[in-house]
């Protein structure tokens, strides 16, 4: 992944929920708060996809979210990385029989790192992101 060397110092992440239960999402926010403090690795949560280097995707991808997820991914500047967080993003989990579920995420956009768990603990999310940073360049 040679072309990603530029991202090694400070990764800006964007969080996108495609139909999850909120838990992965609050655990992502938890990573930013004083106990876990993801910012010490230079990782910052940003509000706009155009500023982001990495998207953190949670949820099983609902029919209504799918076009918006693709659009968001297309709007992201290169080089782009995707991290799937939680069982739903990885395999659609407990929601797989649902008629409105078109996931998992990697069926529609390439995913570079997977963090399993329902929900993954903040430690696991940090571990996943740090491993991704370590694998760059």
């Amino acid at each position: 992944m040679g072309k990603f060397w530029a991202l090694k110092k400070s990764i800006w992440v964007f969080h996108m929920c495609t139909g999850s239960c909120n838990n992965c999402d609050i655990e992502i926010l938890d990573c930013l708060t004083p106990k876990f403090d993801l910012e010490r690795f230079g990782i910052l949560l940003v509000g706009s996809i155009r500023h982001a280097d990495v998207i953190l995707v949670t949820g099983a991808v609902t029919r209504k979210c799918l076009p918006r997820m693709k659009l968001t991914w297309e709007q992201m500047p290169q080089p782009k990385l995707v991290v799937g967080i939680g069982s739903c993003a990885l395999s659609t989990g407990i929601f797989s029989p649902g008629y409105n579920i078109v996931g998992p995420v990697d069926k529609h956009i390439p995913v570079h790192a997977y963090v399993p768990g329902c929900p993954p603990k903040p430690e696991a999310i940090i571990d996943g992101v740090v491993k991704l940073v370590g694998s760059l360049g």
Binding site: G19, S20, T62, R63, K64, C65, P97, Y99, N100, I101
Partner: peptide, 14 residues
């Protein structure tokens, strides 16, 4: 609303 509709009530029937 409806972005997060995961058809839970239907899945519950199975």
């Amino acid at each position: 609303i409806g972005y997060n509709h995961r058809s839970i009530e239907k899945i519950a029937e199975s």
